[in-house]
Nucleic acid binder design. Structure first.
Lengths: 201, 201
DNA sequence: CAAAATATTGAACATTGTTCAATAGAAAAG
DNA sequence: CTTTTCTATTGAACAATGTTCAATATTTTG
C-alpha cells in the first residue's frame, strides 16, 4: 500500500498537524488519540508514527503553532493602540482573551506529557524556545516603547508580568478563584498593571 | 476472600490514601496506577474501587491533603515572623518553597483528570473548595494584619497575589522562563510584592 | 518488464481505568 | 456446633490507549 502521489512527505506532515490542531480545538488534548487522528485523515495509526516520533512530538508541533497564533493575536491587537499604557494593558488583555477563545489549545501547552517513564521531562526543541523568547521580547519592547522602562528592568518586568498574567488566567479558567464573569480577568489585570507599574505611569 | 479484622473501612481508606500520596511524591501523578497502588497495599485493584468511586475521586482526596499540608506549611513559616512586610513575603516564599519541596504532589493538584469524556469537568466537592477559601483567608488576613489593607481591598489583592504567585511558580518550575537558580522565584516575588504593595509599605 | 526502494498498513503487545460475577471467610441464626 | 446469611475481596475480562514492525501494495529505478 502506498499513495505516493497523494501527498509529499511535507504535505502529509501538514495534514497530520492541521487535523491534530482541529481535534484539540474541539475535544482537547485528551481527544487527540493516534487512532482518532488517523481516522480523520483516512490513514492508519502507523502512518502517524512514520511522520512523528510519537504523539508527544506531535504535541510539541501543535503547541508551537498555538504559540505562533498567540503571538500573532497579540501583535494584531496592539497594532492599533497608541504607544502608552493602553497598549500595555491591551497586550495583557490579549493574552487572557486568547486563552479563553482558544481554551483547549492553550491548555494543551501546559498539559503534562502522557508518558510516565518514571521521571524524564523531554526538553523542548530550540525553535520552540526561540518562539517563547520572541514573545517575551514583544512584551519587553512594549514596556520600553510605551512606559520608557530602562532595558534591564524591562526584561525582568516582562517576565514577571507574563508569569502573573499566566497565573491569573489559569486560576480564572479553572475556577480556583471561585468567581465567574468574563470581566474578572480584565479587572485583575488592570489592578496588577496599575499597581505594579505605578512608578512608570 | 476477606480480611475483615485487618482494617476497618475507615482504616482501609486511610491506607489507600496515604500510599497514594507516597507514590505521587515519588513518581508523580502518572505513577499512580490502580494496579501499582493495589500492589503496595497488598490488595487487588478492585478493592480500590470499593473505597473510591474511581481514580479521580482518589486524586481529589490526595490533592485535598496536599492543600492541607500547604496551608500548615505556610502557617508554620509565618508564625515566627513579625507582623510587617517580612511576614507577607515570608508567606509568599512559603508557597514557592512548598511547591519546590513537594513538586509532584503540587503538580498533581493542577494535573487534568485522565478521563477524556469529551467535555465534562467534574466539580470539586464542597469541603475541597472550603479549604481553598481558608487559604485565601489566610493571605487576606496577613495583608490586613501586616500592611493594614482595608477589607475589600485585602480580599481582591489576596486573590490577585495568589494567582501571580502561582504563575511565577509554574513558569519557574517548568522552565518556561528559561532561567535557572533557586533564588529566581524569591527575587521575582520580592519584585512583585514591593511594587504591587508599594502604597502600603 | 523485473527488481529495488518505500510508503502504508493493521495486527499485535503492553498498560491503562473500570466492572462485576464468583468466592472466601466472618457474622448471625438455629 | 452447624447452617445460613452476609460481605469484603478478588481477579479475570473489557475497552481504550500508545507504540512497534513484519508484511504488503505501490512506485520508482535499472
Amino acid at each position: 500500500m502506498s499513495r505516493r502521489k497523494e501527498y509529499t512527505p511535507q504535505q502529509l506532515k501538514e495534514l497530520i498537524l492541521s487535523n491534530a490542531e482541529r481535534i484539540i480545538a474541539q475535544h482537547g488534548r485528551a481527544g487527540l488519540t493516534a487512532r482518532a487522528l488517523a481516522e480523520t485523515i483516512h490513514y492508519s495509526p502507523g502512518t502517524i508514527y512514520n511522520v512523528y516520533e510519537d504523539m508527544n512530538a506531535l504535541m510539541v508541533d501543535v503547541n508551537y503553532e498555538t504559540l505562533g497564533r498567540l503571538q500573532a493575536y497579540c501583535q494584531q491587537k496592539i497594532a492599533t493602540l497608541p504607544a502608552d499604557f493602553s497598549r500595555v494593558s491591551g497586550l495583557a488583555y490579549a493574552y487572557a482573551d486568547f486563552a479563553r477563545e482558544n481554551l483547549r489549545a492553550w491548555e494543551a501547552i501546559y498539559a503534562p506529557s502522557r508518558k510516565m517513564e518514571h521521571d524524564n521531562a523531554p526538553a523542548l526543541p530550540e525553535y520552540y524556545q526561540q518562539r517563547l523568547a520572541d514573545i517575551f521580547l514583544m512584551v519587553e519592547n512594549t514596556l520600553i516603547d510605551c512606559l520608557k522602562l530602562p532595558q534591564p528592568t524591562a526584561s525582568s518586568s516582562a517576565r514577571l508580568l507574563w508569569a502573573c498574567l499566566h497565573g491569573i488566567t489559569v486560576l480564572n479558567l479553572n475556577g480556583t478563584l471561585g468567581l465567574v464573569g468574563v470581566e474578572q480577568p480584565h479587572a485583575m489585570i488592570d489592578d496588577l498593571l496599575t499597581q505594579y507599574l505605578a512608578r512608570y505611569l
